[in-house]
Design a protein around this nucleic acid. Structure first.
Lengths: 134, 134
DNA sequence: TATTGACCTTCCCACCATGGCAAGGTTTAG
DNA sequence: CTAAACCTTGCCATGGTGGGAAGGTCAATA
């Protein structure tokens, strides 16, 4: 027997917000769900699994378009794991690039902050450096 | 004698886009510039310095509202460097948090990708893991 | 049974920082 | 004089998420 959940319960079960579940449907990431006579969305356990899949992929930072691709691969028994791994590696490259960018900011800004006394006087190397031409 | 630049030249001189300079004016980050009779914006060297300041702060990842505060501190001779340093340190904390988040994703996803053969077969641990309840 | 509170629906708006395009005016070089 | 390269404003889009309004539905309780 299939347990059907309304969107609020599906949200609780998946860790997504009801708002986002509607949005994912709207944007084509999810197929339209069944509805009650009154128009309430209903989700079966397979769909709850899909929602959880989406949440976990979001937690890993995948974009919705990546997730779209991942969902299709997941549901395709003919998939080649090569394709999945490639998506993961592309995403890992983006993550690494972002980390590098942030670490660069961190390094520069830490040095600047270290050279700013942070007291009651107006002199501050952070401002001086920002004002300087490169 | 003051050299006045039109927005395109100001963009080149500062490293910002003309689009963004207009946007910064619109959003109140910059005071309205002078205009020619024809309505073209004109920027003097002090304003060019301000634009550079903004670009460098953006490069360090400061938000526009942080930059707003930084600009005011910069222009206020009564400032206390404490205030500047505090902004910098808050931002450093955000940077560190983002780096930590990304590194966590990196770690989890690297492990998953390593356990996916990436060949022609459908089996893939990445998908299995995403599908699993936490 | 009538009401109340907790759901649900759709629709629109906001964030942040940036880019693109369109329709029109201006300036400059050939 | 014309053409190219500027400039102007205004609107739309991105991505992922949240907020709120106005209205319908359902279940429990008084």
């Amino acid at each position: 027997m299939a347990t059907l959940l309304t969107i609020g319960d599906a949200a609780k079960a998946s860790g997504l917000s009801a708002k986002m579940i509607r949005h994912y449907e709207q944007s084509g990431l999810l197929r339209k769900s069944a509805r009650t006579d009154a128009g309430y969305r209903l989700y079966n356990s397979e769909q709850i699994n899909q929602l959880r899949f989406i949440r976990q992929a979001r937690n890993l930072g995948f974009s919705l378009s990546d997730i779209h691709a991942l969902l299709e691969l997941w549901q395709n028994p003919e998939r080649e794991s090569r394709a999945v791994k490639q998506l993961a590696q592309q995403h890992l490259a983006e993550i690494a690039a972002k980390i590098a960018e942030l670490q660069h900011m961190q390094q520069v800004l830490t040095a600047l902050a270290d050279s700013c006394k942070g007291d009651g006087s107006p002199h501050c190397n952070i401002l001086n450096q920002l004002a300087k031409p490169d």
